[in-house]
Amino acid sequence: MNIFRLLGDLSHLLAIIILLLKIWRTRSCAGVSGKSQILFALVFTTRYLDLFTNFISMYNSAMKLIYLVCSYATVFLMYFKFKATYDSNHDTFRMEFLVVPVGGLAFLVNHDFTPLEILWTFSIYLEAVAILPQLFMISKTGEAETITSHYLFALGSYRALYIVNWVFRFYTEGFFDLIAIVAGCVQTILYCDFFYLYITKVLKGKQLTLPA
């Protein structure tokens, strides 16, 4: 464990908590893409299948459980409890356009052709593009609530910090996982224009609006 990965995990945890609290406290999931949340729940499900078979540390197991519980709780709130506030008219990105190519790629490009490894690879590739429905929804509505932009900033920062962690681990341990690194770079690049808007607008107290 290094400080970059710890900060990355905490940023990820913060993002998940921010979103869950936003939906719970405002009793509304307006402006939030349910499809992205379903994809994230799928990412954690396919990545943490070794939760009970491969104990790393209390921290590792606790975080995996928290991510799983919070992501499913968010999906539940959005599609059941606060379904009336779910903006399905703007959340129209076709998830199959992501899941199918990512599933095929996981079969073709992986470290080991075993079920657990292919599912892990699938989760890595899927996580890289899982935010697209959310970014697409914001581009359609042309704006995002400030709390949603904080959620996205924390979520985008997590994988950016993981990239720093991978550089650090490469130079200190000689460890690197090309699949995770390439997917992590793609994932972070997708946030770039949002990062720009967040820093130039939200941090100046303005509403996050996309140029129409």
């Binding site: 990965r5 070794d50 540390s57 991510y67 962690n165």
Partner: peptide, 10 residues
């Protein structure tokens, strides 16, 4: 081989 490396990252 890569899968010997324990996946310790979240």
């Amino acid at each position: 081989h890569n899968n010997e490396i324990i996946k310790d990252e979240l």
